[in-house]
Design a protein around this nucleic acid. Sequence first.
DNA 1: GTCTATACTACGATAGAC
DNA 2: GTCTATCGTAGTATAGAC
Lengths: 227, 227
Amino acid sequence: MSPTTDAAVSPLLTEGVAEAAETEAATKNLVFVAAERLFALHGFQNVSVRDITAAAGVNLASVNYHFGSKDALLLEIFRRRTAELNRERARMLHEANDRHAGKPTVRDVLAALLTPPLRWLAPDHERRISLQFLIRARSEGTDDIRQILKTDVSHLRRFSDALLIARPDLSPEDVYWRLHFTLGMLHNNRFAEFDRLNVLSEGTTSEGDVVALLARMLAFAEAGFAA
Amino acid sequence: MSPTTDAAVSPLLTEGVAEAAETEAATKNLVFVAAERLFALHGFQNVSVRDITAAAGVNLASVNYHFGSKDALLLEIFRRRTAELNRERARMLHEANDRHAGKPTVRDVLAALLTPPLRWLAPDHERRISLQFLIRARSEGTDDIRQILKTDVSHLRRFSDALLIARPDLSPEDVYWRLHFTLGMLHNNRFAEFDRLNVLSEGTTSEGDVVALLARMLAFAEAGFAA
DNA sequence: GTCTATACTACGATAGAC
DNA sequence: GTCTATCGTAGTATAGAC
C-alpha cells in the first residue's frame, strides 16, 4: 500500500503514483463519510470507532492516524458541515442586502437564516444526512463542540447586525433575545421532536413539506419580531 | 458496614435494625442526589459510575443494585423530575381554567407551560440543579429518554387542547405547529445558548432575571399565535 | 507517510462470597 | 444488602511492516 514502494516496484509508474495519491485521500474520506452517516443515524455514543472503520473497510487505527481521536473526527465533520451551511446563509443574506440597498426587511434576514437548513432537511436533499448529523452533534456532541457553540458567534453577527438595522426602533437587547428565540424554533426541528409532534397531532402535521414548514416558521418569527 | 453483622454483634438490636432500614433508603437516595448533581454539572458521559459512588460515599455496585444500570439511574431521575415539573404546569393550567370558566386565553395557557421551568431556572431556586439536569438529559440522554420524548405527549395534550379551545378559528395543524415552535423557544434555554447570547450581545442580555425572560418569551410566542 | 497488528487503560456490568 | 474480583468492550497509543 505504500506509495514509494508501489512506484518503485510497479512498471506503471504514473498509475502507481496516481493510485497512491487517491488512496491517501480516499482512506481519510472513507472514514469521514462513514462516520458522518453512522453518527447521524445512531448517535455519537452508539457508534464505536470499530463500527466506523468496519463500515469504511479500513483499519481500526485509521481514525486516530488521520483525525487524532474519535472526538476530533466528530469535530472535523462538524466544522466542515457547519461552514458549508453558514456559507449558504451568508450568501442569501448578501443577496438580500443587494436587493434592498443594504437594508433588508426582518423577513428577508430571517429567511436567509432559516432557509438553508430547511432546504437540507428536505427528504430528497443530498445534504439531509449532513443536517441530521449537525442536529445530533449539536445536542449530543463533545465538550469541544459545546465550547464552539457557546463562543463562536461570528456567523450570527451578520444577522444580528442586519436585524438591528431593520428594526432601529427596538433596543439591541430586544433584537438579540428575539433572534435567540428564533434560533430556538429552528434548533427544535430535530427528528425526535417531529415524531412527538406527529403523535400529538395524530399525523396531521407533516414535516416532509419543508416549503410549508419554512413559511410557518417565518410567519411565527416575523410576528414575534413585529410585536 | 453490613447491617446483619452490625445487628448481630451490637447489643443495641433495635438501633441496629433502624440504622439498617435507614441505610437501605439512604444509600439509594445518596446515589440519586449525587448522580443528579454530577450529571447536571458535567454531563452524562463525563460522569462515571465510579465518580457517582465515590461522591455519594457508597460502594461501586450500589448503582447497579438499586437502579439496575447507569442508564436506568438516569432514566429514574429524569422521570421523577419531569413528573414534578409537569405537575406544576398542570396545576397552573387548572387554575387558569378555573379563572376563565374553562376557556383561558392563549397567553394563560402559554404562561402555564413556560412559567414552571423558568421558575426552576432562577439562580437561587432549589430546583435549579434539577432543571439543568433535565436540560442535559433531554439532549444528551440515552435512547430510552429519546423514546419517551418522541412518544409521550400526555402532558402536552392538555395544553394543545386548551389552545384549540382558545383559538377555534385556527386549524388544528396551525395550533400544533405553533405549540411546537413555542416549545422550541423554551428548550433552547440551555446554559450554553445563554452564553452564546451573552457573547453576541456583549453582555447586555441577562438570563438571571427570569421574570423579564418569561415576559419576553410570552410576548414573542403570543405574537406568533396571534398572526 | 500510510497502514496494520496488538497491547494498554478505563469503563459498565455481573457473579459469588460474606 | 453489600462488597470484591473479574469480564467484555470501548478508545487510544505504539511498534513495526510496507
